[in-house]
Design a protein around this nucleic acid. Structure first.
Lengths: 346, 346
DNA sequence: CTGAAAGCGCTTACAG
DNA sequence: CTGAAAGCGCTTACAG
């Protein structure tokens, strides 16, 4: 129907093999001939057919990304980073969103590798069944896990150190001179939530502070859960001096509750979130937070998958990235003696 | 390398044609034979090769979506809807994010159709050069515009009625009994911003209210622009009774400023946003807004593109969807005589 | 550096 | 309802 490699070859007065070589930037084509081919291509408005190419080469030039259908800045940022990395390598990104865990584990990614649609897949999801991963392994379908921890199954993955993030967030609060530091966790079915909580506890211990279970509230990464937790403490008359929220959404809820009850931030209540939600920097006061290395997560995930595809990876490698604390206005100045037990805030 | 249609045919004791028919759910295969093929496929763990299929059939089974690399609930929701619609039709979604207008108009979508990677593309972008669309038309590459208006170029598209949305938002404020209604616009390089502004003005006119240019601020769909606009009016001592913000981000900025200056919402200031950002319903008070028909936009966009691909569309059709006002707590009760000029709020 | 030939794994008329 | 044959548009050894 449309112009193909034979048309180009004929017009250039050369063979299809040469045309193919020009297409693939093979160095062994006489420059004079290369020009002839290029000219013929332009004149005929030739567009290579990806399907034919894939069939002949045995790959698809496409990478799949399985991710939750959730409007969340962390997810979005990783998605952008993955797409960019894939594009920069001349490939394309096929996205499969999963609205539910069920979809995630089965229907969606299944379709991709069952039809050889993509060369490999990246899986960005807080939860995914181990059986599913085992099936991927059994089928020898190349994949890389993003921001995911599986103790039982060995698989190539790129993760972020949530324990470190929780620890640093808490430590930066402590450095501001506060002592009664609360935490509102994320859903504890997620390993990341558990790790952030553990980091929080460890920081408290390391600085000789008491771990008060009443100041640890169960949240679920939502504005609402932050609001409710804070309201709970207010009603109890047990208002903490500082809150480490498991994510920025939760922190926004805390700010909302504090605002409603005229609790001044950061003087009466210091606050730090997690994820560096774009809103955080625009609020008054601007929210301190822990920034995840989303760009690196996406890029390194793609690189790792490409290495798996190239057969360069022998065993299950795990790359661990570190998040970074971003101090803005909801935490107090930290250039103070952070470990002086006699120091107290005026 | 892996098992192909011949292996299946041999094992089933039938020809590849029959196997192919089973693969394509052709009705003219004796059920007994169909079972034999299915059994052979299962036993061999056969996976059809998409590239071979595409090459033989002449299509790719993939739809491309070009969209801005922006973390915005409207964009995300349309993306989810498009992916779902594409998936429900047994196809796959290839996403191309554009970080800049330059990327949007050229590099990205160009790659998709230049290599016949997808059967057609959907373009979701506030701005896109007309030359680019013209080029798509010249190349006869199937595409559909989403939420985009081009006066000069005729193209199949699905849009949302922003004039209507702006009008209804303003009218619902008026119904609450307020008179001095301000507007903070979106970037006016976007047609949608202009339309919302026009709808606002028309509503004011229709209800006999004065259009005060000082109460129309230029924003840019950001929290910051809402904050600044509101702070501007506060400093001027010219605080409006109500604000129609061009989007929820802008409205959040207004809430932030109001909270800082202890301006009570909705009693002292009524407020309505646009887009139905998930945060809106979680704030206290919960934000009234205008909900965009994102699910329908995505679904109908895909349907339209599929019709274009099937050759069912003759000329440039434009489907226009209507947004819907969602009243929550930042606007006042509307069961009041909305058009009574003598009515005033206590 | 260039090209003839075979092959990638399907589908599509066509004939039976 | 079933199958032999040709074809989709490329790439890859192999030979020269």
């Amino acid at each position: 129907m449309s112009v193909n490699i034979y048309d180009v070859a004929k017009r250039a007065g050369l063979s299809v093999v040469t045309v193919s070589r020009v297409l693939n930037n093979s160095p062994k084509v006489r420059d004079y001939n290369r020009q002839k081919v290029l000219k013929a291509m332009a004149e005929l408005d030739y567009k290579p057919n990806a399907a034919a190419r894939n069939l002949a080469k045995g790959d698809t030039g496409m990478i799949g990304l399985v991710l939750p259908a959730v409007d969340d800045p962390f997810i979005s940022q990783v998605l952008f980073a993955v797409e960019r990395a894939v594009r920069e390598r001349g490939m394309f990104l096929v996205t499969a969103f999963a609205a539910s865990d069920e979809e995630l584990s089965h229907a969606n990614p299944g379709r991709m590798f069952l039809e050889n649609r993509v060369d490999g897949i990246l899986i960005l999801s807080p939860i995914i069944s181990e059986e599913y991963i085992l099936e991927l392994k059994k089928n020898r379908f190349p994949f890389v896990l993003l921001d995911q921890h599986h103790s039982a199954v060995q698989a190539p993955s790129v993760t972020v150190d949530n324990f470190y993030g929780g620890y640093q967030a808490t430590a930066s609060l402590i450095a501001g001179g506060v002592k009664r530091i609360a935490h509102i966790s994320g859903s504890t079915i997620y390993e990341s939530s558990v790790q952030r909580l553990e980091g929080y506890k460890q920081a408290l211990r390391d600085y000789g502070l008491h771990i008060d279970e009443e100041l640890i509230a169960a949240g679920n990464f939502s504005v609402e859960s932050g609001y409710k937790a804070m309201m709970g403490w207010i009603e109890l008359g047990k208002i903490p001096e500082a809150v480490f929220a498991a994510d920025d959404n939760t922190a926004f809820g805390v700010m909302d509750a504090a605002s409603k009850h005229k609790i001044a931030i950061p003087t009466e209540l210091a606050l730090i979130g997690y994820d560096d939600h774009p809103f955080g920097s625009m609020l008054h006061p601007a929210l301190s937070t822990v920034r995840q290395p989303t760009a690196a997560l996406g890029k390194q995930g793609v690189d790792l998958l490409l290495n798996v595809l190239a057969g360069k990876i022998k065993r299950a490698v795990t790359i661990t990235l570190k998040p970074e604390v971003v101090l803005r206005e909801t935490t107090r100045a930290i250039n103070r003696p952070s470990c002086d037990p006699n120091y107290s805030v005026s």
